Simulated assay, not measured.
Amino acid sequence: MANEPISLVAAFDDLNDPRARQCAYRLDELLLAAICAVISGAESWTAVVEWSETKLDWLRQQLPFANGIASHDTFGRVFSLLDATQ
């Protein structure tokens, strides 16, 4: 059904991970943390990391975040590699 709601994470299922190797931080975890942090007012990658660290217990209810929260450099690098048209 076209009007069925989907989860925030599922909305990005078709987004290709631009990283060439296996990484400690899953793309869906980076996306979820960044989107939620920005919605909550984060305006930099450092602010995204700070928000995510304070909300890690909640984030782990959505996805594993087995390796915790990535650094601001990782967020910036991965997001700069994403295909915006995709």
Rank of each mutant, 00 (worst) to 15 (best):
M1D: 13
M1K: 13
A2F: 05
N3G: 10
E4C: 12
E4L: 15
E4N: 15
P5T: 03
I6A: 05
S7V: 00
S7D: 10
L8R: 09
L8V: 09
V9R: 08
A11V: 01
D13V: 06
D14Q: 14
D14K: 11
D14Y: 13
N16W: 01
N16V: 04
N16S: 12
N16Q: 13
R19N: 04
A20M: 12
R21G: 12
R21I: 14
Q22E: 08
C23E: 15
Y25V: 04
D28E: 13
E29P: 07
E29V: 07
E29Q: 08
L30D: 08
L31H: 00
L32G: 01
A33C: 14
A33T: 06
A34S: 14
C36F: 12
C36V: 15
C36Y: 14
A37E: 10
V38P: 06
V38E: 12
S40H: 08
S40G: 13
E43K: 08
E43Y: 05
E43W: 03
E43F: 01
W45R: 02
W45Y: 05
T46Q: 13
A47T: 00
V48G: 04
V49F: 00
V49I: 01
E50H: 09
E50R: 12
W51L: 08
S52W: 07
E53D: 02
E53K: 07
T54N: 09
T54A: 15
T54F: 15
K55L: 01
L56I: 06
L56E: 14
D57A: 12
W58E: 15
L59K: 01
L59G: 01
R60M: 11
Q61A: 14
Q61M: 14
Q62L: 15
L63S: 08
F65C: 10
A66D: 06
A66F: 01
G68W: 07
G68S: 09
I69D: 12
I69N: 14
I69T: 07
S71R: 13
H72S: 06
T74G: 07
T74K: 06
F75A: 03
G76I: 05
G76C: 01
G76W: 13
G76L: 11
R77T: 04
R77C: 03
V78Q: 03
V78Y: 11
F79L: 06
L81E: 01
L82D: 02
D83W: 02
D83Y: 09
T85K: 00
T85M: 04
